[in-house]
Amino acid sequence: MDLKQRLRALEAASGRRTLPDSGTTAVSAAHAAPHLPAVRAAIPAASGRSQPAADLLATGAERALAQRLGAVHMAPGLLFREVELAAAHRHGGQVLGEVCSIGEQALGVALPPPASGWLFLDTETTGLAGGTGTLVFLFGAVQVDASGFRLRQWLLTRFGGEAAMLDAIRQAFGEVAMIVSFNGKSFDLPLLRTRMRLHARALEERHLVHLDLLHPARSAFGARWPDVRLQTAEQRLCDYRRDDDLPGSEAPLAFTRWLRHGEADGLVRVMQHHRDDVLSLVSLSVALAEAYRDPQRLGADEGGIVRRLNRRGYRVREGQRQLAFSP
């Protein structure tokens, strides 16, 4: 009896539920790839860069994926897509440019000026459990600085691309004074630190302000909404609705199918979903700041907001139509 048969027999005898066999994994063909005309159009001929040498080492499937996404091979196993966005770009009820005027003390955090660089970031991972076996296979961010708005995404097509991705993230962190996330303090950042440590790198973040939108959102709406997830917030505050969105929980499967079967459709949809996530971070910052100024208009919990601001050392003056707070 070979090892495989032996293990299957032992696992059956011990009551262990065996994982599905590789050959029998159901493949869902229901999801067609979305079209990305807006994005395609926004790429000025691959950002005017010369095609990197990494492309020469790519497999046919990787090259096809890069083309579908409008991305380039930054390193073997790492795709990079960059889109310049206009300040007037509308995402839901907000336009991106509004984020530059949310105020220095918005949401009870002292914000560095936008020109010093803000990074609205998000990750897609192979799982939510955390721990060293969870991989960040997609990192993306809207970067705001003096030169405008750029949406950048780094996607792994192989494990081997990770070191290059981490270096790109380190560089992006080095270019800004603030990062903005949704639940990044407990999820994305610890995970990035873990990945960096596994690759003998360190994430330099001491110079950064970290605005984690989950916490101000929870203070303002925790008592009002059934849950405070990003998609709930973007629907209720930004009036943004996604159509044909890939649920975030299916992202790990999409990456797995790409690795095992070379299926690209799922990854294309993950990229789209993830792009919406980071854009929503910008719109949400604008909307939340507005809710903090004028809780009643947006149905926010004024008591929760005041408590948060007090906790963070702000004196809040009430009695006017809008909240005004100063450190």
Partner: peptide
């Protein structure tokens, strides 16, 4: 030999000379 079995069950993925974890979840639990 054992890692190959795990790869076949969809838990690991062999790339270059490394067996990478590629499943969701947290096996120690």
């Amino acid at each position: 030999e054992y890692l190959a079995y795990l790869a076949e069950s969809g838990v690991l993925h062999l790339e270059a000379d490394r067996w990478h974890w590629m499943a969701e979840g947290y096996p120690a639990n």
